[in-house]
């Protein structure tokens, strides 16, 4: 199983080592021509959503990734990745807009609001979560399954082939969320 990790800006290396520890093959996506090889899943990592969004357009990756996700390619977006996937963005502009959610940017304020917690994730159990200047989800559409809620805020959602998390599973040392995503890829 081969997973492409969008490596324009941010914490992509952390996802790569997480996936490789689970035995998945990975490659970094830096430009359009890299998408010519066959792969089964995509990760959009944390970083700065405005930066990643700008680079996606500048490097002509935008339309191709958008149509692949719409066509069913399994994708996991974390933090900035969630914002990139959201159809509606509070405090910013939508980017790929493939997922029927509203992303609220900087929902917990500045760096002083960053935190760690442990919360239930549907079908996985209690998992550690690291929130860094994190967004949250509002107004999930009818086809969106809510997987985790922290203090009344939605922080993990799934809509068919798309998984979006407001926090960073790649920083916790707990591989279960990446395994959950690889299971999604295997089932698709």
């Amino acid at each position: 199983m081969k997973i492409g990790v969008l490596a324009l800006q941010g914490a992509f290396a952390e996802h790569v080592s997480m996936l490789e520890s689970l035995g998945a093959e990975t490659f970094e996506i830096q430009k359009l021509s890299y998408l010519e090889q066959p792969f089964e899943g995509l990760i959009i990592p944390g970083g700065e959503s405005t930066t990643i969004s700008k680079l996606l357009r500048g490097l002509d990756l935008f339309a191709e990734l958008q149509s692949r996700i719409a066509g069913g390619l399994p994708v996991m977006g974390t933090c900035a990745g969630l914002i990139i996937l959201a159809k509606r963005v509070e405090g910013g502009k939508p980017c790929l807009a493939t997922m029927d959610i509203t992303a609220v940017r900087n929902a917990y304020g500045r760096q002083l609001g960053s935190f760690e917690t442990t919360t239930t994730f549907a079908k996985v159990g209690n998992v550690p979560m690291t929130f860094i200047r994190a967004p949250c989800v509002r107004d999930p559409g009818a086809g969106v399954e809510v997987l985790s809620v922290v203090d009344g805020r939605i922080v993990a959602v799934r809509e068919k082939n798309q998984l979006a998390l407001a926090y960073h599973p790649e920083l916790t040392g707990d591989v279960r969320i990446h395994q959950y995503f690889l299971d999604m890829v295997a089932e698709s």
Binding site: A7, L8, Q9, G10, A11, F12, A13, E14, G46, G47, E48, T51, C79, A80, Q111, S114, F115, E116, T130, I132, R133, H168, L171
Partner: peptide
């Protein structure tokens, strides 16, 4: 220690950035 870790992690989010 948690705060220190979160602060290191914010810097990780800046990687490959300007």
């Amino acid at each position: 220690e948690i705060r220190q870790k979160l602060n290191k992690e914010l810097a990780q989010m800046f990687k490959r950035g300007v």
